[in-house]
Simulated scan of single mutants.
Amino acid sequence: MSLFWRIFVLNAAVLIAATVLLLVGPVTVSTPVVLTEAMILSAGLVAMLVANAILLRVGLAPLHRLTRAMTTIDLLRPEPRPEVAGHAGIADLFTAFNTMLDRLETERATSNARALSAQESERHRIAQELHDEVGQTLTAVLLELKRVGDQVPEPLRADVRQVQEITRGSLDEIRRIARRLRPGVLEELGLVSALKALASEVSAHAGFAVRRTFDPALPDIGHDGELVLYRVAQEGLTNVARHASAHNVDVTVRAAHDGGIDLLIRDDGVGVNGAAEGAGIRGMRERALLVGAKLTLRTVQEGGTELSLSVPPLGSRP
């Protein structure tokens, strides 16, 4: 039975019941209407309206639940889906809404995959240009400064050496940026070596200690899975350096029971404290969805923040 006919039948049932009561009951209507009759009819009308409201509330309750789910659901975290409830038209609405979420999730994952693939290609290009163009130019400048420093008078050599150190520092910074844009060590030496290098680099620049715990044997999660895990670790450690005011960070990478890999980053900083998610965290969630990974972020009881990422094995990805 459709929603229209369900509401019609409910209202018709209430009106028929009221009519039957008037026909078979002792109540009659005089002309003019006396006070007792008016009170009885008013009470009957109120009872009819209350009964109608209760029946409609019960019949349309699933719609209120669906409306609440539609206004509160986060497309980056669409689980759990609203359970199909009600009859006929209402159940069809639940099914259509869940189907729409499935389609949106698939289309978003496809779109994000293309966007992030283009982003990685652009990172690769910029890193290559920084290394080949800017890096080689600064290297040539260093060699020229060394040649000039050997020829200038002694009073000026200290100034030339200072310029050399500034240029060398700039060259090191450009190389560091290029490595962050394109983690060549991930392709050349693997995930564990890339994460170790990342942790050491962030620790040296941010000033906090990083304790690393890696399983000796990790399952193969494919290039996309490793790249997502590396980028999430990179963004997570960057967030700790920027916002956490932490002194110690634990980075744990271990094999999961389902054949995937779990990443855990925990610091002793100030915690999330109800702060709204920024572009960095939403970017991590979008990356996680590309490989069907689950990302959670919470403030731990002892203080600090815990970021966890569970990357599923290749065979169970969407």
Results as ranks from 00 to 15, higher is better:
residue 2 S to T: 15
residue 8 F to W: 10
residue 9 V to E: 13
residue 16 I to L: 15
residue 16 I to W: 15
residue 18 A to T: 12
residue 19 T to Q: 09
residue 19 T to R: 04
residue 22 L to H: 09
residue 22 L to E: 01
residue 25 G to I: 04
residue 26 P to Y: 03
residue 31 T to W: 15
residue 33 V to E: 11
residue 38 A to T: 05
residue 38 A to C: 03
residue 41 L to I: 13
residue 44 G to H: 09
residue 45 L to F: 12
residue 49 L to W: 07
residue 49 L to E: 04
residue 49 L to G: 04
residue 50 V to W: 13
residue 51 A to E: 04
residue 53 A to C: 10
residue 57 R to Y: 14
residue 61 A to N: 10
residue 63 L to G: 10
residue 64 H to A: 08
residue 69 A to G: 02
residue 70 M to Y: 03
residue 72 T to C: 02
residue 74 D to N: 15
residue 76 L to W: 11
residue 77 R to E: 15
residue 77 R to T: 12
residue 78 P to F: 10
residue 79 E to A: 14
residue 80 P to Q: 13
residue 82 P to I: 02
residue 84 V to P: 02
residue 85 A to M: 06
residue 85 A to I: 00
residue 90 I to Y: 12
residue 93 L to S: 06
residue 94 F to T: 00
residue 96 A to Y: 00
residue 100 M to T: 06
residue 102 D to K: 00
residue 102 D to T: 01
residue 109 A to E: 04
residue 115 A to Y: 04
residue 120 E to T: 04
residue 121 S to H: 07
residue 121 S to D: 10
residue 122 E to L: 13
residue 123 R to H: 12
residue 123 R to K: 07
residue 123 R to S: 08
residue 124 H to L: 08
residue 124 H to A: 13
residue 130 L to R: 11
residue 132 D to F: 07
residue 134 V to W: 11
residue 135 G to S: 06
residue 135 G to M: 08
residue 140 A to Y: 02
residue 140 A to W: 02
residue 142 L to R: 14
residue 145 L to T: 09
residue 147 R to T: 12
residue 148 V to D: 06
residue 151 Q to Y: 01
residue 152 V to I: 14
residue 156 L to R: 11
residue 162 Q to H: 14
residue 166 I to V: 13
residue 167 T to K: 01
residue 167 T to Q: 00
residue 168 R to T: 07
residue 169 G to L: 01
residue 171 L to M: 07
residue 173 E to D: 05
residue 173 E to Y: 00
residue 175 R to S: 10
residue 175 R to F: 00
residue 177 I to Q: 06
residue 179 R to C: 03
residue 180 R to V: 00
residue 181 L to R: 01
residue 185 V to P: 01
residue 186 L to M: 02
residue 190 G to C: 08
residue 197 A to D: 12
residue 197 A to V: 06
residue 199 A to G: 13
residue 209 A to D: 15
residue 212 R to M: 12
residue 216 P to F: 05
residue 218 L to S: 09
residue 219 P to L: 02
residue 219 P to F: 07
residue 220 D to S: 13
residue 222 G to E: 06
residue 222 G to R: 04
residue 224 D to A: 14
residue 224 D to G: 06
residue 224 D to C: 03
residue 231 R to P: 10
residue 231 R to M: 12
residue 233 A to N: 11
residue 233 A to K: 10
residue 234 Q to H: 07
residue 239 N to Y: 08
residue 244 A to D: 07
residue 247 H to F: 04
residue 250 D to K: 05
residue 250 D to E: 14
residue 253 V to Y: 07
residue 255 A to I: 02
residue 256 A to E: 05
residue 256 A to M: 02
residue 259 G to C: 09
residue 265 I to A: 04
residue 267 D to P: 00
residue 267 D to N: 07
residue 267 D to M: 07
residue 268 D to F: 08
residue 269 G to I: 00
residue 269 G to T: 02
residue 269 G to L: 09
residue 272 V to K: 06
residue 281 I to L: 15
residue 282 R to P: 03
residue 288 A to W: 11
residue 289 L to T: 03
residue 289 L to I: 04
residue 290 L to R: 09
residue 292 G to L: 08
residue 295 L to N: 05
residue 295 L to P: 08
residue 296 T to M: 09
residue 298 R to L: 10
residue 308 S to G: 05
residue 310 S to F: 00
residue 310 S to A: 12
residue 311 V to S: 07
residue 311 V to K: 08
residue 313 P to R: 05
